[in-house]
Amino acid sequence: VTVADVIAPKRPTVNKVDDNDKKVTGKAEANSRVTVKVGSKSLGSATADSKGKFSVKIKAQKKGTTLSVTAKDKAGNKSSKRTIKVVKH
């Protein structure tokens, strides 16, 4: 019997991002694909490690920019998005 994974990952937790940062870091479901977007434009994505830690490389963003971060597991289930505002360095 094969049980399909139909449970979406929890929303990722995201560390503070300032207008100098060239990466977004935090924690998500282990081995999930984490994507960072501004609106509908993707800034980048990376795979979380076996402990759920992730680091997505991005271009530095202006203060006040709202980033949305989602995680997608190997079965294709997508988390709800976590939004975070870029702060002044």
Rank of each mutant, 00 (worst) to 15 (best):
S79C: 09
A8P: 06
F54Q: 12
V14I: 09
R33K: 03
K63L: 06
T83L: 07
S68Y: 15
K85Q: 14
T66G: 09
S42E: 06
T25L: 10
V6D: 12
V69R: 14
V87R: 04
S79Q: 09
V36F: 02
T83A: 06
G52M: 06
K78D: 05
T66P: 08
N20P: 00
K59P: 00
A75D: 13
N77E: 15
K41N: 10
G64E: 10
S79M: 08
K10Y: 12
S79P: 01
D49F: 13
N31K: 09
A28L: 01
A46Y: 01
K51D: 06
P12W: 05
A60P: 02
K72A: 09
D19N: 06
V36H: 04
I84Y: 15
D19P: 03
S50N: 00
K37R: 02
K81E: 11
S68H: 12
V69S: 14
T66D: 11
V36I: 04
S79W: 12
I7F: 10
V6L: 14
K72S: 10
V56L: 11
T2C: 00
S80K: 10
K53F: 13
K81I: 12
R82C: 02
V14R: 00
A8V: 13
V3G: 01
F54A: 11
V87M: 12
F54M: 13
H89W: 14
V56W: 07
R11A: 03
A60W: 08
A28F: 06
S42D: 06
F54R: 04
T65D: 07
G52T: 05
G76W: 15
S55P: 09
F54S: 11
L67Q: 14
R11N: 10
N77Y: 03
V14M: 11
N15P: 08
K63I: 07
I58F: 06
V87F: 04
K85P: 10
K22F: 02
I58L: 03
V86E: 05
S79R: 04
G39N: 03
K16F: 05
V3Q: 00
V86C: 06
D18E: 12
Q61M: 15
T13V: 13
K51R: 09
D73N: 12
S68M: 06
K22A: 05
K16T: 00
V87G: 07
V56D: 10
S68T: 14
N20S: 01
S45H: 02
S80P: 07
T66K: 12
N77S: 11
S50L: 08
K22Q: 09
